[in-house]
Design a protein around this nucleic acid. Structure first.
Lengths: 257, 257
DNA sequence: CGGGGACTTGATACTGTTCAATTTCCGTGG
DNA sequence: CCACGGAAATTGAACAGTATCAAGTCCCCG
């Protein structure tokens, strides 16, 4: 396997790379149908593969990019987990999203040429770096890639609208329910359990994302647990009654607007 | 002028249109440097102009599109003012954005093929409709347009991050200050006064956008007025001390996170 | 001129924050 | 391997900021 990968890299790459860290081709990547290559034929996928740079893994706490840094590349998460944060002048930070395998980061910078958010690894993470200029050229040659890229950006906009709905009109426990269900879906889409998973982020980071204080998040977890809806043991989550989580969203006895 | 426009339309349009409503070419549109045509040479702009459909104006309250409706076109605001809203199952609505001249709507639908938000006119508005399939083909032929389109989508993502910051970590008066400053900038960028403008939306809609109740918005306005920061007379706003509004954002005595 | 929606303002209630004290977890070094 | 120390998480009590409810005014449209 490793041999095959090395051969392929040497065959196709303009600048043959030394494969010090685990290297995977788009063609053989388990995430290809979730990630950028979705829908590409094998030749096109090979072309995309050739512009991608697979960097040594990020360690927990490492920055993938920083707010203010200029746009060099887009980044696809191959393994691991990251957060992106927007910073306020006065130091307050807002987590704008959590990112898992198959998701694309860095699109915030295309507009101005500079990132407006930090991207930070929440655990050791492997990243596929996609130099933006190369990507622009390639996507111009591959309409399928182009179209898919538009869909990915649009989905990010749609996701953001969902977060606004959450932040603007849900109460604390609804927010946490929505958050857990969202994670659950995304894990399921990647072939992991929809009901048991590990939170890679702290209560503080969850709180920042949900517009709540960490204590409030903790209390909401405790309440869900006491109701038997989820089993929480620190970062280990088991959703015991997904239906009741969904109900918390749907009905919302105390609707606010 | 009108004569020139009609001639141009007949020369270039595959299906010559009857010009019942005010028609403007991208080439002669005052918004061309803010809107999609930004950066295009005149021939390219003409090509873009030719795929654009200028519909009869929307009336106050009309829907431009509805959540669930399938993606047909993107829409550029030529005159007027619109809001987009995300709806919750239980009827709660969250205003996700306000849109003024030169801004592009409908990008939420590219990902799934269906709109996830409603777009509703807050006053009579003229819209340039850009059939999405035609636009995809044209942008493939015009790399400048392509690149600009990416920038526009990215800016929408960046804007959304800003809204998350607002909803997730600002208190009521900060939110209103941020909102007023944002409107002020956008009016200024369009050649209008940065300090005097008319709010096209109700207190309720402002509140929904800011994650507040209309009463809270009203109280915040009253407070700003009593401080002499802004003069409010119903929908008429005059920002008297922009610096103090900016300070409300920057320092934030009662910083929350 | 009349009517209804939009807005303002006040009093009260409640959700979530703040502050503080423990407890638990986890990585580090002995 | 275990003990230690610091960060993360839980829990409680008091407080603050908004929401809610309610009354009344203003403004605009017909």
């Amino acid at each position: 396997m490793e041999q095959h990968l090395t051969l392929a890299a040497e065959r196709h790459s303009a600048k043959p790379r030394v494969s010090t860290h685990c290297e995977t081709l788009c063609q053989s990547c388990g995430l290809r149908e979730l990630c950028l290559p979705a829908g590409l034929c094998s030749q096109d996928m090979e072309q995309l593969n050739n512009i991608i740079d697979r960097k040594p893994p990020l360690k927990h706490g490492d920055y993938l990019y920083r707010a203010g840094g200029s746009l060099q590349s887009l980044y696809a998460v191959r393994t691991g987990f990251l957060k992106s944060c927007v910073l306020h002048d006065d130091g307050r930070e807002q987590v704008a999203g959590f990112h898992m395998m198959g998701e694309l980061l860095g699109m915030d910078a295309i507009g101005s040429g500079k990132h407006i958010s930090d991207a930070i690894a929440l655990e050791d993470s492997e990243i596929c770096e996609i130099p933006f200029r190369d990507f622009e050229h390639l996507s111009h040659e591959l309409p399928t890639l182009q179209r898919h890229f538009h869909r990915v950006m649009s989905r990010e906009i749609a996701r953001d609208y969902g977060v606004m709905l959450l932040l603007g009109s849900m109460r604390a426990e609804e927010r946490l329910a929505a958050f857990l269900l969202n994670l659950s879906q995304r894990f399921a889409a990647r072939g992991y359990s929809a009901t048991r998973f590990i939170l890679r982020m702290t209560r503080q980071e969850i709180g920042s994302y949900l517009g709540l204080k960490l204590e409030t998040v903790s209390r909401a977890f405790s309440h869900f647990q006491s109701e038997g809806i989820v089993a929480v043991q620190n970062k280990n989550i088991e959703i015991k009654e997904p239906e009741r989580l969904r109900m918390l969203l749907g009905q919302c006895a105390g609707a606010r607007q």
